[in-house]
């Protein structure tokens, strides 16, 4: 849980370039469907929302359901028109938010 999310994106891009961003965060994504050894249901605990912003503007977001695999891997694209910072946020069922930031620069 405490692991830092892994994010992969280029450090630099040409203006207007569409880059690919890959993210992976460690999380059990407990579906709420499984039962423990005593037959009691294991309560649901998943990341239900992911969002990515670039300089405060929304780029990509998704609402996740229990049908997303453990350690959710999300890959998407973004168009880069200026220098700036990508902000990533993963929201857990219990309200905790895992955040991360990555900077990108326009190639001179």
């Amino acid at each position: 849980m405490a692991d830092k999310p892994r994010i992969k994106l280029p450090k630099e891009a040409t203006k207007g370039e569409i880059i690919q961003i890959k993210t992976l965060v460690s999380h059990v994504m407990e579906s709420g469907q499984r039962k423990d050894a005593q037959g009691k249901p294991i309560p649901r605990k998943i990341i239900n929302k992911f969002s990515c912003e670039f300089n405060g503007k929304p780029v990509f977001a998704c609402a996740l359901e229990p049908a997303i695999s453990a350690n959710p891997y999300i890959q998407f694209t973004a168009r880069v028109d200026e220098d700036g910072t990508f902000k990533f946020a993963w929201t857990d069922d219990d309200g905790t938010v895992i955040t991360a930031e990555e900077k990108i620069a326009i190639k001179a």
């Binding site: 569409i18 670039f54 929304p58 780029v59 990509f60 977001a61 998407f76 973004a78 168009r79």
Partner: peptide
Amino acid sequence: LMFSPLSG
């Protein structure tokens, strides 16, 4: 999945 024009 929610996209935006910034998604490219």
